[in-house]
Simulated scan of single mutants.
Amino acid sequence: MPRPSNTEARREQIVAGLLKAMAERGYEGASVAEIARAAGLSAGLVHYHFEDKQEILLTLVRSLASRARQRFATRASKLAADDARGRVEAFVDAFLATGPDADVAAVAGWVTISAEAIRQPEVRVAYEEVVRADLEHLEALVAAVVGKRRARPLAAGLFAAIQGYFVLSASAPGLVPPGSAAGTVKRMAAGLLDAATLSPSDREVS
């Protein structure tokens, strides 16, 4: 696998700096100087690689989405080809599970991004693009269990639960028992899928 270029590595370093700075000071307080400090670089290097702070944030949106999708791919690769329910659980785990690849900073960052999506049209476009793609992915996973007709509302409900846990864990962490999010949403998913699963004679052709 080729090594990333110096430019790519620097950009990733700066994006990670924004994530760290936002965790400490929020987006408004994450000035270019603070991002540079968190990244261990000079402010001049930050300006060299990015036009402004918003461009770094937009890059962070794509980076966080890619990290969650990679966690799903890793989990899904360990499942049998016909384990449709396992893939729904793997999706939930990819976003909410604790463990060696848990991404606590990413959760807090995603909540900040969702808030900025309300304020900044450019961020809203990037945020909606990521959310739409992830929701469509979850809908396809759910459809493999219950059929296409019933998949959309179930997927939307599960995705909303995931996003709700993001907000709670970032804004009021004491309200969420540690390590409970993934297990709770997976149990919700199991109940919803059981209730929606059609009998073989009624199942629509997907």
Rank of each mutant, 00 (worst) to 15 (best):
V46T: 10
Q54T: 13
R62I: 03
I14R: 15
A117C: 04
S77T: 05
A90E: 03
Y27P: 00
K148N: 09
A196R: 08
G157A: 15
G40R: 07
P177S: 03
L19S: 12
V123S: 11
G44K: 08
A33F: 09
I118R: 15
A33C: 05
V176M: 02
S171Y: 06
G40S: 12
S31Q: 06
I14T: 08
R11A: 11
G44P: 14
T74N: 13
A21V: 03
S66R: 15
V146F: 02
S171T: 13
A33I: 09
A68S: 11
T74Q: 14
H47D: 06
V142T: 02
E116L: 15
E89D: 13
S206W: 10
D82S: 13
L57P: 00
A126G: 01
V61F: 01
T197H: 09
Q13K: 14
P178Y: 02
R10G: 11
M1W: 07
M188I: 12
V142R: 01
I14V: 12
S66P: 00
R119C: 03
S206E: 13
A81D: 14
G40Y: 07
G164E: 06
A155G: 02
E89T: 08
D82I: 00
L96E: 06
G164D: 05
G17P: 04
R67H: 04
F159A: 11
G164Q: 07
R203V: 15
L138S: 01
A182F: 07
G40L: 06
V123I: 09
R119E: 09
V111E: 04
L192C: 14
A190S: 11
Q54I: 06
T98I: 05
G40T: 08
M188H: 10
K53Q: 07
A43H: 13
L193I: 06
E24V: 05
G26Y: 05
P4G: 02
A144S: 14
V146S: 05
